[in-house]
Amino acid sequence: MKTSRAILLLLLLLSGAFTLGIFLQPRALKRAGRGQSGSVLSLLLGDSRRLFANHFYVKADVYFHSGLYPSIFDQARDAEEKENHMAAEQHGEHSESEHEADMHALGPPTDWIERFGRHFQVTEHTHLQGANIREILPWLAIAAELDPGRIEIYTVASYWLRRELGKADEAEQFLRRGLSANPDSYEILFELGRLYYENRHDANRARNIWLLALRRWQQKEGTQKEPNWVAYDRITGDLAHLEEVEGHYSEAIKWFKVTKEHSPNPDDVQKQIDDLRAKLAHGSAQQ
């Protein structure tokens, strides 16, 4: 083949490849925009990526416990449904004794093989502390990439990022990513409000975000048979504390009253209301 002909053929192939690229690019973008996540992973895995997302979310919990985690066989020993310890830790609901019991689901060894095998397994129950908590983050990021609709991934990651690692910017960025994938999520809004209140010390913005979270809660849970009152109490409780710190006692009392309606500890809330009323009366008397 002559050199000129070869060059022409090369140019033809090059222009063909370029044309094909131009032709396919908008289609690829359109295709990527089908799901909630436009990543290559979602394109390749489809909805099955949610299964993998769960695996990586559990992986983060395994890392949180430094490798000690009951297998599905160990879990089968315990008939009760296990809660996710990492999320429970974030919410501060799970009592330590319950938590210990969950993690000791390994049970006593049944034979010498299992007993000896335990020497080559992590059997000590510990939690990641301080800066080491960052080790759970890659798995949460991957889980969020695979299943952008899983809300707890964003709130858990944000909690550790801002509380333990002091990375409020990264936490906000991640929460906003979660919010764009789940615009109706009151949980993410609540966590975002906490970030503004606790890390940015921006009470006004925190208040606005929590009020929005409350509206989202009412839209989403208001029609439910069994609404999530725990989340409701958390939002109204934080609003009440914010108003109390800001010195808006009557507003704080209003929010505490709302919290009391569904609180598991109404007496404690009433005590706070009484304290605030006393402060309010004291303030009026001084004036």
Binding site: Y63, L137, A157, K167
Partner: peptide
């Protein structure tokens, strides 16, 4: 080479 949350010290994964 991937950085998660701008943290260069994550290594266990």
């Amino acid at each position: 080479s991937i950085r998660f949350f701008n943290d260069p010290n994550i290594v266990r994964d």
